[in-house]
Amino acid sequence: MKTLHLLRHAKSSWSEPGLADPERGLNKRGRRDAPRMGAALARDLAPLVMRVSPARRAQLTREGLCQGWPALADLPHITDEALYTFSVDVLYRWLQRLDDSLVEVFVIGHNPALTELVNELTGRHALDNLPTAGYARLSLGLERWSELRPGCGELALTLLPRTLQDG
């Protein structure tokens, strides 16, 4: 059994129109939501190494999660160039190549790839859209990542910033 944790980067800023997409940071809401999501996830999960898109907004989301979930800060998070993708196919192939010793994998990435991945792995339309800073946990009925296939997963939990009860 494998577990896949997916988190879409927090709300990005469009305040600098000439900035290349990978360089965009977070807007005010994104800077607020990332620590809130970190605190909420800390109540439910043990700290995990995160695999993160190199996009600045994804990196800043990871930093924000660490603010709200301090136990994450000391872990050796991994920036992976392949995670700067909007394609479910690229993300799917990336997952299939993971080391089988990894029982749980936490990815901070981008839409539409994340939403489409949830729907493909559950074999149904489980999500309309994983919103910014939204989290989805999938329980996958497989022993090896190379066995990843449509319908092998169950959406075990979603956590969205707008539904958080702070405190």
Score class of each variant (00 low, 15 high):
64 G>R: 04
81 E>W: 00
140 L>W: 03
136 A>W: 09
77 H>L: 12
32 R>I: 08
26 L>R: 00
130 L>S: 02
69 W>A: 12
89 D>H: 10
70 P>D: 06
154 E>N: 09
68 G>I: 11
79 T>W: 06
106 F>R: 09
15 S>K: 05
34 A>C: 12
132 T>I: 14
36 R>P: 10
136 A>I: 08
86 F>Y: 13
151 G>L: 02
90 V>T: 13
120 E>I: 08
43 R>P: 05
146 S>H: 06
89 D>S: 12
24 R>D: 06
151 G>Q: 04
83 L>R: 01
17 P>I: 12
161 P>R: 01
144 R>V: 05
132 T>W: 05
149 R>P: 03
127 L>F: 07
147 E>V: 07
24 R>T: 04
105 V>T: 14
116 E>Y: 11
134 G>I: 10
84 Y>H: 05
78 I>M: 08
25 G>C: 12
121 L>T: 10
55 A>T: 03
76 P>K: 08
85 T>C: 04
109 G>K: 03
62 R>A: 14
112 P>C: 11
85 T>P: 05
123 G>A: 13
18 G>S: 15
58 A>N: 00
108 I>L: 11
70 P>L: 11
104 E>M: 05
98 L>R: 11
83 L>A: 09
68 G>T: 13
70 P>N: 09
40 A>P: 03
141 G>E: 15
34 A>E: 09
28 K>N: 13
118 V>N: 00
1 M>L: 14
120 E>V: 12
43 R>T: 15
5 H>A: 06
16 E>W: 06
41 L>W: 01
112 P>G: 13
78 I>A: 06
71 A>E: 15
147 E>G: 03
161 P>M: 03
117 L>Y: 13
11 K>P: 08
79 T>G: 01
104 E>Y: 07
16 E>H: 08
161 P>T: 07
59 Q>T: 07
40 A>N: 08
162 R>I: 13
73 A>W: 00
52 V>S: 00
111 N>F: 11
159 L>I: 04
38 G>L: 12
48 L>N: 07
137 R>V: 06
67 Q>I: 15
98 L>I: 03
10 A>F: 10
118 V>M: 02
9 H>V: 07
114 L>M: 12
130 L>G: 01
108 I>A: 05
31 R>A: 15
68 G>A: 08
